[in-house]
């Protein structure tokens, strides 16, 4: 049951995935690690969410001390199936697989869907709009590849001594991590 076919994706898709991994390694993660290193606590530890433990309870949107939660949805593109029917993007029973508001699951319309090549679509999070509610994370985890997940964004987090969300987290998903490695990212799915 664990064995899987090693099917090739179309060349163009393979190429963009490969490019994606390289760009992420060079920019986003490295840059953010730098940010947190400068802003972290004296002990050099910061709060983070273990995505494997998160139960998608909704508290991350409502319990943070900040007006707009420091928790955001993060997308592991390398794990994503680039599905036409993205269960993190669409309502369970959408009228049509279009970007019309009534078809979207996200309460703030924070997920952008764009066509890549037949039949693949890319989904990006607009972090200005994301409130960290985890609705999309639940949809993707239940019926998709689990490529959407929550992380505390350390360029936003004010590093409370005791994280207000951690106090209520039913999944016990919060833990301290070294400021030099502030993210607990999901790794590539075995597809």
């Amino acid at each position: 049951m664990n064995e899987q076919p090693k099917s090739d994706r179309p060349t163009t898709r393979r190429t963009f995935l490969r490019n994606g991994a390289r760009i992420a390694a060079m920019t986003g993660l490295g840059a953010l690690a730098g940010v947190v290193a400068n802003r972290s606590t004296a002990e050099g530890w910061v709060w983070q969410i273990d995505p494997q433990k998160c139960l998608r309870c909704g508290n991350c949107a409502t319990k943070c001390v900040l007006e707009q939660s420091a928790v955001k949805c993060v997308h592991a593109f390398a794990m994503c199936g680039y599905c036409n029917l993205c269960t993190g993007y669409f309502e369970p029973e959408p009228n049509a697989l279009t970007t019309a508001a009534e078809n979207q699951l996200c309460p703030t319309g924070a997920i952008q869907r764009s066509f890549i090549e037949d039949p693949y679509y890319e989904y990006k999070i607009d972090e200005q709009l994301c409130i960290g509610c985890a609705k999309c994370v639940e949809g993707c985890s239940r019926f998709g590849n689990g490529s959407l997940f929550l992380q505390i964004r350390h360029d936003r987090c004010v590093h409370c001594n005791e994280c207000a969300i951690a106090r209520t987290c039913p999944g016990d998903a919060f833990r301290r991590v070294p400021a030099s490695q502030p993210y607990l990212l999901k790794t590539t799915h075995a597809h």
Partner: peptide, 25 residues
């Protein structure tokens, strides 16, 4: 452009939109 993990810039966080503000309310 694809990235393995998508994390936006800090500046973006603080440029809040009306939609997000409504939700925050």
């Amino acid at each position: 452009m694809k990235r393995e993990f998508q994390l936006a810039s800090r500046r973006k966080f603080f440029s809040q939109t009306a939609g997000a503000m409504a939700i925050l309310g």
